[in-house]
């Protein structure tokens, strides 16, 4: 199992950040993704594999400042 934004979610072997975002139905164009203690750069979403028992935070960013 992994935890995504506080929810328990089944862990899938070899699933990347991109895959997890799709599975969770997160379609926000711009997000900050943190896996355990590390913020995963956007450029690594398609390669970074989420390990079992991870704690994942997905934060949606919108424009305005």
């Amino acid at each position: 199992m992994i935890e995504v934004n506080g929810k328990q979610v089944e862990w899938r072997k070899d699933e990347t950040v991109d895959g997890l975002l799709k599975r969770m139905g997160y379609s926000f164009p711009i997000v900050i993704v943190r896996v355990n203690d590390r913020v995963v750069p956007y450029t690594e979403f398609s390669r970074f594999v989420v390990p079992d028992k991870s704690k994942v935070n997905v934060v949606r960013l919108v424009s305005g400042g």
Binding site: P29, I30, V31, I32, V39, P41, Y42, L61, V62, S63, G64, G65
Partner: peptide
């Protein structure tokens, strides 16, 4: 971080943290 564009915000956050 007090930027406007969401994409730049994300890039900035990633760069500062890393």
């Amino acid at each position: 971080e007090a930027l406007d564009d969401a994409e730049i915000k994300a890039a900035f956050i990633e760069e500062i943290l890393s």
